[in-house]
Amino acid sequence: MNDTDTTKVDRAGTAAARSAFEIGHMTFVEITADPVTGTTPSAHQRARETIEQARVADQVGLDLFAVGEHHRTDFVGSAPPVVLAAAAEATERIRLTSSVTVLSSDDPVRVWEQFATLDQLSGGRAEIIAGRGSYTESFPLFGYDLQDYADLFREKLDLLLQIREQNPITWRGRLRPDLDHADVGPRALQDQLPIWVGVGGTLASAINTGRLGLPMALALLLGPITQQEQAVEAYRQAAEQAGHDPATLRTSINLHGYVASSSQAARDIMYPYFAQGMQENNHQRGRGFTMPRAVFDAQTSPAAGLVVGSPQEVIDKLLTYHQIYGLDRALIQIGFGGMPQKDVLTAIELLGTEVAPVVRQEVAARKEVAA
């Protein structure tokens, strides 16, 4: 067996030994004016802060660091693979993923090249969460018609998956030029670079993902904690009907949250920034809104979706998510709305040192009992 083969076997073993429940931090690297001080960070400041967040997340033992994609000047994350490559050099163990890659308005060949390169740079730590994009500014920017919104994603996801499975590749499509024995490189360092599908909650998306047998990354912004139950059920039913074992399919939840030393401190710190972010980051979609404190507090209750509170409160909420959905991981967006870096780093540290170990242990115990 040569050195390359040894590396492949070792990495397959490492993947199999991942924790029973993975917890990560995600960011869209937005530039939002601080509602307390009135100052607006520069793109350079936000970019450097993002790498520091990745470094701390790695040091405190979180499983994942994720960067989302937006194409506006009030976001720095228009090129997640570039940010993640910088994060790879600042970290050692943490897995690096997009959240999400707007595949519909990108080219699957280029997406593969970028993330396979990231995989090589990081020592096999790259992942992709591919999505349609809830923000649509990238479609006209790159010359795509929104009338093809659904077809673009289906066709491009098919190509991305085929690139992962074979090289060279011959492929025929309708919305992208054909490929004839195309050599697409580099190849990933992992045996199989993980490709998740980001689902906002529509049943059709969940069903299609299940039919493909792909892992599903759900999003829950606001609303009851049970909001995505129907989507998960439809996903697993579709997978089983298509011949996939639902027990082997992975699911995650992407949501907003914050952890502090006490419940009150967590809510007091997060609220002004989250409210500011909700107003500034939704106005260009035609539905910006104000969020009264009472509404925010209601969304942090045990029955609602936000993961906010003391370490024990966040532990309890994540275990509730696991109990409801049977999830494998949670990606928590900390700092949305221009929160100061010191507060973001404090929450990341508490999430990694006080929350994650307890959640992993409890979920592992639940699985052992169930087995």
Results as ranks from 00 to 15, higher is better:
140 P>D: 13
96 L>Y: 03
202 T>W: 09
54 A>K: 01
219 A>P: 00
327 L>E: 08
209 T>M: 00
79 A>C: 12
364 A>L: 05
243 G>S: 00
371 A>G: 14
331 L>G: 06
25 H>L: 08
69 E>M: 01
339 M>P: 02
120 Q>R: 14
286 G>C: 11
188 A>N: 05
293 R>H: 04
314 V>H: 04
327 L>Q: 04
6 T>I: 14
82 V>D: 09
73 T>G: 07
155 E>I: 00
65 F>N: 03
366 R>M: 08
158 D>A: 15
34 D>N: 15
82 V>G: 05
274 F>C: 02
94 I>E: 00
311 P>V: 10
344 V>M: 13
267 R>Q: 15
99 S>W: 04
206 A>M: 04
75 F>Y: 15
370 A>M: 10
67 V>F: 02
343 D>E: 10
212 L>E: 08
346 T>G: 12
86 A>W: 05
303 A>N: 13
38 G>F: 01
34 D>V: 11
66 A>C: 14
233 E>H: 11
70 H>P: 12
255 L>T: 15
92 E>G: 15
192 Q>R: 14
186 P>N: 05
185 G>D: 08
205 S>V: 06
108 P>D: 09
331 L>M: 15
146 L>S: 03
200 G>Y: 01
213 G>V: 04
223 G>A: 04
50 T>M: 03
202 T>M: 04
229 E>S: 12
120 Q>W: 11
207 I>C: 02
129 I>E: 07
47 A>Q: 11
297 D>P: 04
358 V>H: 11
286 G>A: 14
178 D>L: 05
109 V>L: 01
30 E>V: 11
326 G>I: 06
178 D>I: 13
325 Y>I: 13
45 Q>V: 09
163 I>A: 03
307 V>Y: 03
163 I>P: 04
